[in-house]
Write a protein that binds this DNA or RNA. Structure first.
Length: 471
DNA sequence: ATGTGC
């Protein structure tokens, strides 16, 4: 495929036709500025998107987000919808860390009330386990495993780690109802309590930020956001369990095909197959572990605030909590027909437009809240889903406002960036601060401009980091 | 994204 295959189909939309590669059932649509779209030509990420468009039963088009990058199977930052029934489910189009996602908490007080940021980041670092030896901050018994898998964040509520108000503002109420651990190998079930309530040892983080700019005051108010207000983002997943589920079913699906399939081909399974149904149940269980995990971390954040700031400390309300690696059965308009679609979102979030069924009740009329963390040390965004996104991206937006670092575009390290921007930082890993970062300090990144320009979500607020606890 | 892996 060459540049000639990339056709502009909208101001921020580019399409690679099915003729670009043998076996494609649908085109690939890139939602990006011209620069970002052209940067994808010749990349492994685009090859992976073309392969995703070849999955049996693929519908409409494969969506590539502006910051899509190569992963295993489908690109991180892509949406693949398949016919249900008639199509397939592919774990690698969902992502290994099932229900990796983001929670946003907001306070009713201004960020300026926190005078000692160092003490706060220290308290967060102490209360939220991370690193290779991280263990759950509370006792999680083996018998908790089934409850966590079946009831997600609602398990946390019953154990006193959540408020009713939290549950209302978590996607799906923090609980998917078809989840079960039945039929899974014992070693796999044992993973559930292992790292619950921890940031593990990778790219996850807790970030304290200030609401730096509000683009839509009325929407911001519904989302409990005020200019200058203190907010907290939690980025975490299903605490090793999701990866175990993904690995297990990738193997199950490969074996079911006689083990003959090319290892480079994404493992997949017909939706009607019993193996796919078992996978769906385990997928929901892993998603519930993710919701429970972020709820438990949110509880620890509250404990840390109380420890650092005492009685004068702010109350932390949940704004929203959403998955960015997940698969769901949904209804969508595809080429004028209302169809049941199985929507794989990998590095992509649900961003339903106003009034769409399935949106958490406080936001039903507004539209699906979208949480888009940026690169550590730089801006993050809160957005809201649109009607336009329903037809453009199966009601999806990207999970990150950070663009991929291109060769030759690095300028210094994360440590220098944090120093320059006055961001407090704690991590068990000494190598994190040496991570190379991009040169651009433009607060409205090209990714955010691409999302806004393509119309899949509207910007509500921009967040500026004050302190980060990084895994 | 991660007690990666060729």
């Amino acid at each position: 495929m060459s540049q000639r295959d990339l056709k502009q189909v909208g101001r921020y939309q580019w399409e690679v036709p099915t003729s670009a590669r043998e076996g494609m059932h649908v085109p690939v649509r890139i939602l990006a500025t011209e620069d970002l779209a052209h940067d994808l030509i010749g990349t492994e990420a685009l090859e992976q998107a073309l392969a995703s468009a070849s999955l049996p039963g693929a519908l409409g088009h494969v969506v590539m987000m502006p910051n899509a990058h190569a992963s295993s199977g489908s690109p991180m930052g892509s949406v693949v919808a398949t016919a249900y029934p008639g199509g397939v489910v592919a774990p690698s189009a969902i992502g290994d860390d099932i229900n990796c996602g983001v929670r946003l908490l907001a306070t009713s007080t201004g960020a300026d009330t926190v005078t000692d940021v160092e003490a706060l980041v220290e308290a967060l670092f102490e209360h939220i386990p991370s690193g290779e030896t991280a263990a759950p901050p509370i006792s999680v018994s083996r018998s908790d495993a089934d409850l966590i898998a079946q009831s997600g964040a609602q398990w946390a509520y019953r154990r006193g780690f959540a408020e009713q108000d939290d549950l209302v503002r978590i996607e799906e109420g923090g609980r998917l109802s078809e989840a079960t651990l039945e039929g899974l190998p014992k070693e796999l079930k044992q993973k559930v309590p292992e790292k619950l309530g921890t940031l593990e040892s990778g790219g996850h983080f807790v970030e304290v930020s200030v609401v730096d700019e509000i683009y839509e005051p009325a929407s911001a108010q519904v989302m409990r956001l005020t200019e200058g207000g203190l907010v907290i983002q939690i980025h975490a997943g299903s605490a090793t369990f999701g990866r175990a589920v993904s690995a297990h079913f990738t193997e199950v699906f490969r074996e079911a095909r006689g083990g003959t399939s090319d290892a480079s081909e994404a493992a997949h399974c017909d939706h009607e197959d019993a193996h796919a149904m078992s996978y769906q149940d385990a997928l929901q269980a892993a998603a519930n572990v993710g919701y429970a995990n972020r709820q438990l971390i949110a509880h620890q954040v509250r404990e840390a605030f109380a420890a650092a700031l005492g009685e004068e400390g702010p109350t932390l309300h949940t704004v929203y909590d959403m998955a960015h690696n997940m698969g769901r059965l949904e209804m969508h308009q595809v080429n004028g027909r209302h169809l049941r679609c199985y929507v794989h979102r990998k590095g992509a979030v649900r961003a339903f437009g106003p009034g769409t069924p399935g949106i958490a009740s406080p936001y039903r009329a507004l539209g699906n809240p979208v949480l888009m963390p940026g690169q550590p040390g730089r801006s993050s965004w809160v957005l809201v889903g649109t009607h336009r996104g329903m037809s453009t991206s199966f009601g999806s937006s990207t999970h990150s406002g950070a663009r991929q670092l291109r060769d030759g575009h690095q300028n210094g390290t994360l440590g220098e960036l944090l120093e320059r921007n006055g961001v407090a930082f704690r991590s068990h890993r000494t190598d994190q601060l040496a991570t190379p970062v991009a040169a651009s300090d433009d607060p409205l990144t090209e990714v955010a401009r691409s999302v806004r320009g393509s119309g899949i979500a509207r910007l509500v607020a921009r967040l500026r980091p004050l302190a980060i606890v990084h895994a």
